[in-house]
Nucleic acid binder design. Sequence first.
DNA 1: TAGAACTAACTGATCGATCGATTATAGTGC
DNA 2: GCACTATAATCGATCGATCAGTTAGTTCTA
Lengths: 197, 197
Amino acid sequence: MRPVGASGVETRQRVEATALALFAAQGFTATGIRQLAREAGITSAALYSYMGCKEDLLASLMRGLMEPLLERSQTIATSDTQPEVRLRALARAHVRLHGEEPLAARIADTELRALTGDLLGEMLALRDAYEALWVAVIVDGVRDGTFACADTRLVAIALIDLCTGVSGWYRPDGRHTLETIATMHADLCVAAIRAPR
Amino acid sequence: MRPVGASGVETRQRVEATALALFAAQGFTATGIRQLAREAGITSAALYSYMGCKEDLLASLMRGLMEPLLERSQTIATSDTQPEVRLRALARAHVRLHGEEPLAARIADTELRALTGDLLGEMLALRDAYEALWVAVIVDGVRDGTFACADTRLVAIALIDLCTGVSGWYRPDGRHTLETIATMHADLCVAAIRAPR
DNA sequence: TAGAACTAACTGATCGATCGATTATAGTGC
DNA sequence: GCACTATAATCGATCGATCAGTTAGTTCTA
């Protein structure tokens, strides 16, 4: 039964926003499609107009964070600037997106294990490509003497993790702007591996 | 039907080890008690000899990480040493335990949202008490001029997160000993917030 | 010392509930 | 009239937890 004035575009947005909120708050598996549908204002059967299956919905939400993050970061990592400038910009981009999209970030950071098959492969590839950008920038910095570190991959992961917690606590009405927070994290990253003078 | 030679002590250990592995690999909610029981070598009914309910089991696994972590860290944070020494030791303790107990760490880091009521309150209190130790040490370091940072809480969380990723990749047969990795992380933490000279 | 009584360590079956996904159908809007 | 946007009902399956019962191991007592 189609309600008066129903719009597929709006309903899709509601479904996605509801899924973001519920998956982030209680986890993918713990969110049943009946709850998702009810809170999106439709029935569970109607959900399948907007998603292939539940796992497809999860993957698309995660993609919604990972793809822009990777894109922004690829541009930064390949820019013709000093490694320190690039590392700062990588950190900023990471914190910014995690602050702008905390729900998607939280899902992307915790629900990889809910994915199977090709979807899992795809998300792992995005994650690995993203990490590789950080590694490359740090390697450049070590090579030109800006940075010093004993294990580039370990450090890249540690710094990415350092920038990741924002999604758990940032609020737009908090003490600092997201830009300030992003800068603080960038400062921490650069200071952490700056080579001794 | 009691099997010949069955031992409650051994069975309990198997249940806990199985739960650690499964909860960490696929998530708490996605791990059904029939699977847990089967892989522990008993039936789902027998599980209830070893846990109050599924959520109780989760909480006890998380407690198994959080309590020693908090204990070790309390001793460190209240020791009569310089803030830098204490921060290094906090980071080491964190990385060490996350490397020694990667499964419990992974669960503690991702499954808080599966808890409800008093259990959730308890775990949140442990987490908050733990964070407060880092904050206190960093505050001391800022006060005595060793450290410089604009927002102590933000930095404490960022540094804890920096040390947390180990549980995702450390393997005992890897390139570095856990002690070396712990030291690297401690170095990153101290360098990240050391005051300019 | 043997058997009864008890405790420990389970089992198969069941309960009430929910799960993700599908199907036939129906109202809406252009 | 047809594409869109839903619905109620249903399917086959699984969920966490409980219950009545069974076997193994230990202790007690006559």
